[in-house]
Design a protein around this nucleic acid. Structure first.
Lengths: 354, 354
DNA sequence: TTTAGCACTCGACCTGCCTGAGTGCTAACC
DNA sequence: GGTTAGCACTCAGGCAGGTCGAGTGCTAAA
């Protein structure tokens, strides 16, 4: 059943006032803020109806109303006005985004920090692969006669390396043989395709340096594994304490602990978002995780390219400023998508030349 | 002036009881716990003396005594008994330490987490170089005609890589020329020795692919910079709320914020510790950082090898269980030192062979 | 349908009171 | 002299009761 226009206006005013103050909202206060030229008694009637229908609730008899999750949901779906970011804010974001392009991990982490600073809520960020990752190539670099660097590149264009120091001697030709072997046997394979049998075959072909095969391959496995179970970065957890709903230390601590548990966070929040595009708002009980049942989450995902996707999100009380947060989050996500979309290389002409 | 034996016993009992309960300790309670066969009145006299001399204080007239920083200091220096870890604890630590050897960053971070879990205090961990780092070698790997991987190795045996995608074509010989150029011009240089002039000379020699020199070198500079300003990992900040002294949300939040500010943390806490070896306890006002004036810090540093050192530390209320924390921290630090001390490679014979 | 008015509810806050833990001091004791 | 028992004193914390005021629902009139 559709709500009347006036009811919607009242609901909206309640939500916005409660978002701003965290205090139950009374009929008198609404008379002024809702912009309807009716008396407080009329508003009381409307409030009673809205309460009846489950959009609002009363913490106790003689208190004002606060929105229920259902109320927030309606607000988010229909009533919320798209927030425009101020010039200053966009400037800030752009500046931060165009910092030097470091390792992916660091950019992700930095994005989380930025979002947290921008919204004053704790934030998290992660990147992951929507698909299985395979190995694209191996390179082995001889450093000296007893150590070498293994470089592994995946088909998602991630490159990782590791330095190996050996108790035994090693020669350039040996290493080249190894490289060829690795590249013929293991390229194009996903993590679970790297079976022990495959290893054994390759080791056999490797002759005297057979032991190295398993070393390098298990490194490659670590790399693939790391890419598929990418880690989450959390930032700004101290912002939890900003909000009166977390005066209750116990509540605050539970949320903090939850946020610091990578696994829980990844599984219940971030991964589901990887496959859904765009922004998403989860209000209170809409969250799967028990710990978040009275907490809201705003998420945005973006494309990194090479089959990878990123997610940034913000966690806060259900009384969250959804409009502002969603706007900021989307803007940052868009910025990141653009950042990753462009070639990593700035036009190759150096601008200083005498 | 030396304290009498009995005074020391009383002080010790006060500190330990206060550490355990966070409640001011009265003369009656001490009668039982201090293990002296004297009446509460006698103890009261001793308490009065200790208070006079600045080792204890009273939150208010009719309350028991709590230790002052000076009291804690004496306790730590003379009275504290070296704690032995339980078998279960050492087993736990060893197990965690012998996980697969991943990237240095991750090991460091993991160590911090472990310490935090072990002590129930927030912990931080970082690694840094005691000396200037230089470049040891460059390698460039051609991936396809428009992209290559740059691998940079430093004299601290850290290897980093980056994938470059070019708008232009690139050939193997070109890349080899570049590699030689880079290796002759920039090897052995520290960050500040990588001057623009040096770059210009090298670019000149590079002919048509001169633009790539600056790309690779600036990547190398990032690597050196990153190694010298290594980042701190904080974990377990939610443990702050475990302790009654941080019921005051404001206080808790200030500490949390401080802990999440990498820069402050590195400069005021971690870096100073890098140069001092072994364990260190800083009590309340002994800390330089204003934010830590009523907080204690226990630090341990260890050798990573190749001129690198690591620091792990724990932050908590002055009423911290110094003995336990110090024991655990040292054990972990020792473990890490050993872990890094051993060759990264396990004896190269695979134990399964048919 | 809206409004004014009124009785009612209930949390927040203040107040004063009481209790008990803990003190310092004094005088007696060994 | 150090040690102890006893006693008066202090003060935070908890509890009970009272007041205040914001906000309600309901009713009756406009």
């Amino acid at each position: 059943m559709e709500l009347t226009d006036r009811k919607k206006k009242v609901l909206r005013a309640v939500v916005e006032s409660y978002i701003a103050t965290a205090e139950p909202v009374g009929s008198k206060a609404l008379m002024e803020t809702a912009g309807l030229n009716v008396s407080s008694a009329t508003i009381r009637n409307e409030l009673a109806d809205l309460t009846e229908e489950g959009y609002l609730e009363q913490p106790h008899t003689s208190a004002g109303r606060i929105p229920t999750p259902k109320g927030y949901r309606l607000y988010v779906n229909e009533l919320m006005e798209e927030q425009r970011l101020s010039l200053e804010e966009t400037r800030q974001i752009n500046e931060a985004l165009h910092l030097k392009m470091q390792e992916l991990d660091k950019v992700i982490n930095e994005a989380g920090r930025m979002v947290s600073a921008l919204t004053n809520y704790p934030a998290f960020a992660l990147a992951g692969n929507a698909r299985r990752v395979t190995i694209r190539r191996f390179d082995l670099i001889l450093v000296d006669s007893s150590s070498f660097i293994a470089v592994v590149m995946t088909d998602s264009n991630v490159v990782k390396n590791k330095l190996f120091r050996l108790p035994a001697e090693l020669s350039e030709p040996q290493l080249q043989l190894l490289t060829t072997l690795l590249n013929t046997a293991f390229v194009g394979k996903t993590l679970d395709q790297l079976t022990p049998e495959l290893m054994r075959v390759a080791e056999h072909a490797a002759g005297s340096s057979y032991g190295l095969i398993s070393l390098v391959v298990s490194f490659a496995m670590e790399v693939l594994d790391g890419l598929e179970h990418s880690s989450v970065y959390t930032s700004g957890t101290s912002h939890i304490l900003d909000h009166p709903e977390y005066q209750d230390l116990d509540k605050a601590q539970k949320l903090m602990t939850y946020l610091s548990e990578e696994k829980a966070l990844t599984e219940s929040l971030a991964l589901p978002a990887l496959n859904d595009d765009g922004a998403k708002i989860l209000i209170g009980p809409e969250n799967v995780a028990e710990e978040l049942k009275d907490t809201s989450v705003v998420l945005a995902s973006y494309d990194i390219g090479d089959g990878m996707k990123g997610v940034i999100g913000v966690v806060g009380p259900t009384r969250m400023d959804y409009a502002k947060v969603a706007a900021k989050l989307s803007y940052v996500a868009d910025g990141l998508a653009k950042l990753f979309g462009q070639t990593e290389l700035p036009p190759a002409k150096p601008d200083k030349e005498e």
